[in-house]
């Protein structure tokens, strides 16, 4: 998590208007879903992975690792789509084999659907990764404010974003402390320690929120957390690239 957040702040596309980056990601996700072809998904994966590495300067190892994890998960997830399980041998066009009393079978249609799902979801995931790895959450908050998201929600997101990291650090410290005292040595102890940890974390979170309330109120807080937006710039080259991505996806769709 800290990995993605770190590159979101330190990449070469950081000061480009978040609206532009979001538009690109949404365009690719939309095209992947609507065109619905395996080749489109694969081309989209290559484009978005490439853009993240080449234009944003995120190391390819990082981009690859995130994408690989998603790919592994996907391949496992579509096994159920590709294969069917039954107690009797399935009729053709199913091709099947027997494991014990269980027949595992699949037909060409189910295999191609599985392939389509993997490539489509991978293309969408690559587009999401592009957005996540180039745009910090606070920039997206700025965008959401422009899109007229209710201010209460925006405040909630700001507070959450700050506290996620604070609480995570707290939790890791408590976990280390418990572990060094054999708190997770047995299953029973682990359950007890987790419960203690969660309850202390809750109290800590609660008390922090009241302290923060006091601190903010004493500085004139009326329920609006304002953050100065960066001076974002519009990147013409990214728009051209976006148009190239879009048209290449359409081309691939037309040819497949």
């Amino acid at each position: 998590m800290q990995l993605i957040d770190r590159y979101a702040y330190a990449n070469r596309l950081r000061n480009i208007d978040p609206a532009q980056k979001t538009a690109l990601a949404v365009l690719v996700i939309g095209l992947c879903l609507l065109l619905n072809r395996p080749a489109v998904g694969l081309v989209a994966t290559a484009w978005m992975g490439g853009l993240t590495v080449v234009r944003a300067g995120v190391p390819w190892a990082v981009v690859g690792r995130v994408l690989l994890a998603e790919g592994l998960f996907l391949v496992l997830a579509v096994v159920g789509v590709a294969l069917s399980f039954s107690t009797s041998p399935p009729p053709p066009p199913f091709r099947s084999f027997q494991v014990g009393a269980l027949w595992i079978g699949g037909n060409p249609a189910s295999f191609s659907l599985a392939g389509l799902l993997v490539s489509r979801a991978l293309g969408c995931a690559a587009a999401m990764n592009f957005l996540a790895l180039t745009t910090p959450l606070m920039d997206l908050v700025h965008l959401l404010r422009q899109l007229r998201m209710p201010p209460v929600l925006i405040d909630l997101i700001c507070v959450m974003y700050r506290f996620v990291f604070i609480l995570l650090e707290r939790m890791q410290r408590m976990h280390t402390a418990q572990q060094s005292r054999l708190g997770y040595a047995t299953r029973r102890a682990a359950l007890r320690s987790s419960g203690l940890l969660a309850s202390r974390l809750f109290v800590d979170a609660y008390q922090r929120s009241t302290r923060m309330q006091t601190a903010l109120e004493s500085r004139g807080y009326t329920g609006d957390l304002r953050v100065l937006p960066l001076n974002y710039r519009y990147d013409a080259r990214l728009s051209v690239l976006g148009a190239a991505v879009g048209s290449s996806l359409l081309l691939v769709w037309g040819f497949s």
Partner: peptide, 28 residues
Amino acid sequence: LVATKPESRLLLGVSGAFTFVLSALKIP
């Protein structure tokens, strides 16, 4: 809620973060 109890704004945000962080806690 926020209109009647202003302090609940921060509390809700912190609770959201708590939910997020708790999902990282592993149980046997």
